[in-house]
Simulated assay, not measured.
Amino acid sequence: MIRRMEPVDVPAVVAVHLQSFPGFFLSFLGARFLSLYYSGICTASEGIALVYLNGKGAPAGFVAGTANPRGFYGRLLKRDGIKFALASLGALFRRPTVLFRLLRALTHPSGNPVGDEVAGLYSIGVLPELQGSGAGKKLVQAFLEQAAARGCRRVFLTTDRDNNEPVNGFYHSLGFSIEQQYVTPEGRRMNQYWISLADRKQP
């Protein structure tokens, strides 16, 4: 079952994120930072956030993003920027060299596409035991349906280009196409995918 993400789901979503993305930057920033992030998405008027429930009715997967991506991040940082900074202190104490990367993470979304007809899919994860079960595909399809219902015409996402063949193949299989490739200051080569909601593959 897939339903809308609610604030009560955020701790479980954070737990799924940490298991899905060990070693990634957002995971390094910690559970408090992630809680603010996902709470901000699921309570925003432009938020598109869903959870996949297991047989016991507990969140075992999620997908999160928003319409008008640039507008969302600007408002989120204006409202909760200090909270995000405070939530990052533990990570900065553990590794002070991440400061500049953190500043970029908090300001980079200002370059995201803008407009109510565009949606950004920021994050998707499922528990390890659900990988390969089709849960991820169902979550993406549900996200696209919600984006279309909001009046969005296109959806974008980014993911790593290198050593990430299963994920890149997954998005290709769903009808996403690479429209941009770039390299982060840390040297990560990234793919930016887009899909037209009018042309997307149906389940």
Rank of each mutant, 00 (worst) to 15 (best):
20 S>T: 03
16 V>M: 06
121 L>E: 07
131 Q>G: 00
57 G>F: 15
81 G>Q: 09
33 F>W: 15
181 Q>V: 13
68 N>A: 05
66 T>M: 11
93 F>M: 07
176 F>G: 01
58 A>S: 12
72 F>D: 04
203 P>L: 11
95 R>G: 00
179 E>K: 04
156 F>D: 04
161 R>V: 02
153 R>A: 03
148 A>E: 13
167 V>H: 05
112 N>Q: 11
21 F>V: 01
116 D>S: 14
181 Q>E: 15
75 R>E: 12
10 V>I: 14
103 L>N: 05
177 S>T: 12
118 V>C: 06
7 P>T: 02
125 G>F: 08
94 R>Y: 05
115 G>S: 04
167 V>G: 02
201 K>Q: 12
176 F>Q: 07
172 H>N: 08
22 P>H: 09
134 G>D: 03
86 L>V: 13
174 L>A: 05
147 A>I: 04
53 L>R: 08
117 E>W: 12
97 T>S: 15
157 L>N: 01
25 F>E: 06
154 R>F: 10
77 L>M: 15
23 G>K: 10
143 F>E: 02
169 G>M: 12
63 V>S: 03
40 G>N: 07
197 L>Q: 07
197 L>Y: 10
72 F>W: 15
30 G>F: 14
92 L>A: 03
79 R>D: 06
182 Y>C: 00
125 G>H: 08
11 P>A: 04
162 D>V: 13
146 Q>G: 11
36 L>T: 01
38 Y>L: 05
166 P>V: 06
60 A>S: 11
36 L>K: 07
162 D>K: 13
13 V>T: 02
77 L>I: 14
188 R>H: 12
90 G>W: 09
141 Q>V: 08
167 V>Q: 10
195 I>G: 00
48 I>M: 12
66 T>I: 07
199 D>K: 05
107 T>L: 14
25 F>K: 10
187 G>N: 10
182 Y>A: 01
156 F>H: 06
68 N>I: 02
84 F>W: 10
196 S>E: 14
4 R>P: 01
